[in-house]
Design a binder for these strands. Sequence first.
DNA 1: ATGCCGTGGAAACCACGA
Length: 263
Amino acid sequence: MQQPETTVKIATFNVNGLNARFAALQGWLAEFEPDVACLQELKAPAERFPADAFRAAGYHAIWHGEKSWNGVAILSRHEPPLERCRALPGDPEDLHSRYIEACIGDLVVGSLYLPNGNPAPGPRFDYKLRWLDRLIRHAGDLLAEQRPTVLAGDFNIIPTDLDVYAPERWRDDALFRPEVREAYRTLLEQGWVDALRKLHPDQRVYTFWKYLRNAFTRDAGLRIDHLLLSPPLAKRLVAGGVHREVRAREKPSDHAPVWIEVG
DNA sequence: ATGCCGTGGAAACCACGA
């Protein structure tokens, strides 16, 4: 039977601890029913990924976990994600679980958790810059495939002054330093489209608020969670936003889910 | 405001986050 034309909902959510956040995540999945959800900061080893509970909630999943830190996953409502890789190419020594990529129907989906990079300068910031070099190279390879592709996740990059409540306080931070913003611009120059900025060119749209000092109620936020779309997917973009209400609930992640709809 | 929360894991604290 021919299905009616529908939109596809794709979201990214840094959960800050999958097991601590599972009830909240389950609630959000039930309400929003994303077709695809990219998760970051699982902070759980692979064997503690609640795959059965996700199945019960209606989701297939692939994941790349590690003990205590990092961790990324891709959830899919309709068909199982077909994994393409579970590390960003270019450095076999990099063992952090920060990238996983899959085919879901006609889509290519990458879920990423970019290194924070603080304190900067220093070895952690150097690691972030090397990771960005590898991301730019891989992102170029993905664009060359000319397929509908989304790179979604916690980029730990504040792209512009519009994306931070107090730019002057963040100038020297690893999330906002010139090298990092330059790398983000390089991705856009390659042809990737920043979905939320495309839809809301002049608006302050934050995705993260510190737990400290009532940052959320003061709306002292950052926009660091992004969905970058390849041109074939960008032309299908119809809507998008941030589920701020999820950040306002009991025991929230410090990030809110970011979502788009594509035709 | 440089760790005020929060998480995870080891050890009754510490690392890390952004």
